[in-house]
Amino acid sequence: MIGEEITLKGVRKSYGSTVAVEPLNLEITAGEFVSILGPSGSGKTTLLTMIAGFEYPDEGRISVGNRDITRVVPNKRGIGMVFQKYALFPHLTVAENVAFPLRMRRQSPHDIRTRVAAALDIVQLSAFAARYPHELSGGQQQRVAVARALVFRPPVLLMDEPLGALDKKLRESMQFEIKALQKSLGVTVVYVTHDQEEALTMSDRVAVMAGGKLAQIGSPHELYDEPRDSFVADFIGKMNFVPGRVIGREADEMIIRAASSELFRLNARKLAGKQDQLVQLAFRPERARLVRKSQARPGALGGTVSASVFVGSHHMYVVDVSGDDTRPVHVQAEPGSDVRFSAGDEVEILPDPAHLTAFPLVEVR
């Protein structure tokens, strides 16, 4: 394994009066694949450029292994980088593009030939060594960029939206290729993206940025099943939010009154709530059932189907919840169910109690 750990301690960056990254601590273990995920302006790219050395932090320390690289210039950090636009030299062949970092490091011709051949073999482009970038597909160009970033065997590889220019099918294929390559080499990868599905698919851990702060870091499963706040819950996957109010507590359960005056019981550990606190009940579309309207069914949200959308693998229903000023609720049809609903149908939504959570009522960004 060639990867080394990355440590950021108290790192902060501002541009004039605008704080791009609040003081932040982050530890990435050797050989780990960590994605930095967040909306535009969240600070994720600024964080990456500080690790790369294109920007210096105003405060804090950045280290790779046991080396303090906080003020080291980019070409002395020994870090590989892949950009969204690949930045290949159009007048150089594939082999010459891959060899470029080695020539800059004054490697011997023999070492250059050996390492270039090995790098092209890793990305399965040995047969394309003599071609020029314009003779390659987007996916092939992307692999050349990866080979060039890895040819000098860096302990850390930074990737900034590297698949953003590819179509969906090719992007999904390249996700698995990059992950497999990273695992085989053991290189530490920091991967910046705004695509949540991409981050969840590829990463050992995902760091979610919001407003220059590290909102939450964890495994894809942790972020999806146990989001720390409503922002992370809303940003990772699709989440339904229904306003409610805490009206009491019995033993280890919080009692919440939500839409249509329906009562819901929530494990107290999922919400540090107090009497009369406004909250948002939250559940995933696949963690609820949709049934025909009944006269008396506890723990149900009544509503009207406003749309039925077929997305290939399943149907998704959009439901306007009765007596409540909230966003439409999305419910994914149960696998194998023959029951179909149409716009205008009166229905009830039954959230799975085991996967129902709540957050203090704040605006979902």
Results as ranks from 00 to 15, higher is better:
residue 276 D to Y: 12
residue 289 R to S: 13
residue 28 I to W: 00
residue 278 L to A: 14
residue 62 I to M: 01
residue 4 E to V: 00
residue 290 L to C: 02
residue 132 Y to E: 00
residue 299 G to A: 12
residue 310 F to T: 03
residue 187 V to K: 00
residue 224 Y to T: 07
residue 175 Q to F: 07
residue 245 R to M: 14
residue 359 F to P: 00
residue 308 S to W: 01
residue 202 M to G: 05
residue 312 G to M: 06
residue 30 A to Q: 00
residue 327 R to Q: 07
residue 179 K to R: 15
residue 300 A to G: 05
residue 12 R to M: 15
residue 44 K to Q: 05
residue 9 K to N: 09
residue 77 R to P: 12
residue 234 D to P: 02
residue 159 M to E: 01
residue 167 D to L: 06
residue 344 G to W: 02
residue 112 I to T: 03
residue 323 G to K: 06
residue 304 T to R: 08
residue 167 D to I: 03
residue 125 L to N: 03
residue 203 S to N: 12
residue 124 Q to G: 03
residue 185 L to V: 13
residue 146 V to W: 07
residue 195 D to T: 13
residue 168 K to E: 12
residue 72 V to N: 09
residue 329 V to G: 04
residue 47 L to D: 01
residue 131 R to I: 02
residue 261 S to H: 09
residue 1 M to D: 08
residue 128 F to G: 01
residue 30 A to M: 01
residue 136 L to P: 02
residue 273 G to Q: 02
residue 83 F to Q: 12
residue 162 P to S: 12
residue 230 S to Q: 11
residue 356 L to E: 06
residue 203 S to G: 13
residue 125 L to Y: 02
residue 131 R to V: 00
residue 162 P to Y: 15
residue 175 Q to K: 07
residue 270 K to V: 09
residue 39 P to R: 11
residue 191 Y to M: 12
residue 21 V to E: 09
residue 135 E to L: 05
residue 181 L to K: 06
residue 106 R to I: 05
residue 333 A to H: 12
residue 234 D to H: 07
residue 42 S to T: 01
residue 348 E to P: 00
residue 168 K to S: 14
residue 141 Q to C: 11
residue 25 N to K: 12
residue 339 V to M: 13
residue 157 L to Y: 10
residue 199 A to R: 10
residue 305 V to F: 00
residue 342 S to M: 08
residue 360 P to Y: 10
residue 90 P to L: 04
residue 135 E to W: 10
residue 174 M to Q: 09
residue 41 G to S: 12
residue 143 R to H: 13
residue 269 R to G: 12
residue 69 I to F: 11
residue 49 T to C: 01
residue 253 E to N: 13
residue 172 E to L: 14
residue 322 S to T: 11
residue 118 A to K: 05
residue 51 I to Q: 04
residue 35 S to Y: 08
residue 355 H to I: 00
residue 92 L to P: 00
residue 141 Q to N: 11
residue 316 M to Y: 03
residue 304 T to C: 10
residue 183 K to I: 10
residue 97 N to K: 07
residue 92 L to W: 02
residue 286 E to S: 07
residue 256 I to N: 03
residue 115 R to L: 13
residue 148 R to C: 05
residue 244 G to H: 06
residue 325 D to E: 14
residue 106 R to L: 13
residue 14 S to T: 11
residue 69 I to N: 11
residue 257 R to E: 15
residue 223 L to C: 06
residue 346 E to G: 04
residue 46 T to N: 13
residue 303 G to A: 08
residue 108 S to Q: 08
residue 354 A to E: 14
residue 337 S to D: 06
residue 351 P to L: 08
residue 268 A to L: 11
residue 299 G to S: 02
residue 136 L to T: 03
residue 186 G to K: 04
residue 63 S to C: 04
residue 137 S to C: 14
residue 253 E to P: 03
residue 312 G to N: 09
residue 246 V to D: 04
residue 85 K to N: 14
residue 260 S to I: 02
residue 38 G to L: 04
residue 4 E to T: 05
residue 122 I to N: 10
residue 361 L to M: 14
residue 321 V to M: 02
residue 236 I to L: 10
residue 210 A to C: 07
residue 354 A to T: 09
residue 140 Q to E: 14
residue 50 M to N: 10
residue 56 Y to G: 08
residue 109 P to Y: 02
residue 55 E to T: 12
residue 172 E to I: 10
residue 29 T to H: 00
residue 216 Q to F: 04
residue 130 A to F: 01
residue 37 L to G: 00
residue 66 N to D: 14
residue 48 L to T: 10
residue 148 R to L: 01
residue 191 Y to S: 04
residue 60 G to R: 03
residue 57 P to Q: 14
residue 259 A to K: 05
residue 116 V to H: 12
residue 314 H to E: 09
residue 74 P to K: 13
